[in-house]
Amino acid sequence: MNPRRKKRLFILVAILFGIGSAIGLVLYALQENINLFYTPSELIEGKGPDKQKPHVGQKLRIGGMVVPGSVVRDEKSLFVEFKLIDTGPLVTIRYQGILPDLFREGQGIVAQGHLTSFDTIEAFEVLAKHDEEYMPAEVAEAVKGIRHEKPAYTIPKGN
């Protein structure tokens, strides 16, 4: 192989390596920003046909209805804890901050945060639906058939 071809081949390999490295670094950086949407049932039972569950520490969004009687507020801080439900199990949401004005029991919400245990999420953002007509498609599909009635069971108060 003549020196000119060797030089061109080296340059081509270096360019391909550089592009591959850049793509790899971008994908690695974006991995931190991926947050999947779950319902309480999908969080506990698993999502998809292979029933994959999120791991502790994973960033995610969860949507459902706030269980009536489950909201517990700390009187000395902005800490609030409440339960979410769809058609199955309950999930606990812990949030430190000011809740949206439209937040109330029996309301559909979406919380974004980190999974701290298999059924508890430490939220850093809570969004409440803003009118009766609009609901994101993924939330509407997840909460189909849920009634806005107080459940027959009671949730113990406390942290």
Results as ranks from 00 to 15, higher is better:
R73C: 10
I62V: 14
D74R: 00
V143F: 10
L90A: 08
L36M: 09
V91Q: 01
K157E: 15
K144S: 14
Q107K: 12
E42R: 00
L30E: 14
F103L: 12
F79D: 14
H148K: 08
G158C: 09
G48L: 05
H55N: 13
A22D: 02
R147P: 02
P100F: 09
F37L: 10
A128F: 08
L16G: 02
G88Q: 04
K129Y: 03
G63M: 12
L43D: 04
L9C: 04
M135A: 04
D101A: 08
K76R: 14
E132Y: 01
D101G: 02
D50Y: 01
K144N: 09
G97I: 07
G106S: 03
E141K: 03
V72W: 10
T87F: 06
G63H: 08
T120P: 03
D50M: 13
V26M: 10
A14S: 11
F10I: 12
Q52T: 15
G69A: 04
L43Q: 08
E132L: 12
G88Y: 07
K6G: 12
A128H: 05
L30G: 05
A128K: 01
L9H: 03
V126F: 03
H148F: 11
V66A: 06
T154R: 07
R73L: 13
Q112K: 12
A111M: 05
I34V: 13
H148I: 13
L9Q: 13
A123D: 07
S77Q: 04
Y95G: 10
E132R: 00
K6Y: 03
H114I: 12
F79Q: 13
I109C: 09
S70T: 05
V80W: 01
V66C: 13
D86Q: 05
A22F: 05
P151R: 06
P136D: 15
K144A: 14
P40D: 11
L90W: 03
M1Y: 08
F118C: 02
F118T: 15
N35I: 05
Q96I: 13
K51N: 11
N2G: 14
G108W: 07
E75H: 00
D131W: 03
A140Q: 10
A137M: 08
L16A: 15
I93A: 11
L12Q: 07
G158P: 01
K76A: 14
N159L: 15
G24I: 09
G64V: 03
Q58L: 08
E141N: 03
S77W: 10
E141D: 09
E105C: 02
I11L: 14
I121A: 09
